[in-house]
């Protein structure tokens, strides 16, 4: 029997992996993947909790909107990463060191 606890553990696990990737990886694109994992962890929660009150389908509606948000975010991010590559010739986040305290 799969209970809410299992869903929540799975999503918390996914969320932590995503956060770790987004905070530690050097490549901008991989960091973006981490953000996607975090959003999808939230989606698992939303769809699972929808079982509590299936008639209203709030969770399903929210999950669809989260997917839309993720798509829009990727759009903007890839555009920015292309610009980044034009100027820096790499997408390594550790090489972004033009801005610092003077």
């Amino acid at each position: 029997m799969v209970t809410f606890l299992h869903y929540m553990l799975a999503s918390a696990f996914l969320f932590s992996i995503g956060l770790a990737i987004a905070l530690t990886k050097r490549s901008a694109i991989v960091a973006l993947m981490g953000v996607e994992l975090m959003l999808n962890a939230a989606n698992i929660n939303l769809v699972a909790f929808n079982l509590k009150n299936p008639a209203l389908a709030d969770g399903h509606a929210f999950a669809i909107f989260v997917i839309v948000i993720a798509a829009a975010e990727v759009c903007v991010a890839l555009a920015l990463i292309i610009k980044l590559f034009q100027y820096f010739k790499s997408v390594d986040l550790h090489q972004l060191n033009q801005l610092k305290e003077k």
Binding site: V35, M38, L39, N43, I69, L84, F88, L93
Partner: peptide, 27 residues
């Protein structure tokens, strides 16, 4: 461009945290 990428990464992570928080509260 560098500032925009930094801004984006912070923003995306914090939005993701917010959405996760909303999913917990929804539960």
């Amino acid at each position: 461009t560098e500032a925009a990428i930094k801004y984006f990464l912070f923003g995306a992570v914090s939005t993701a945290i917010t959405i996760y928080g909303v999913s917990l509260i929804y539960g």
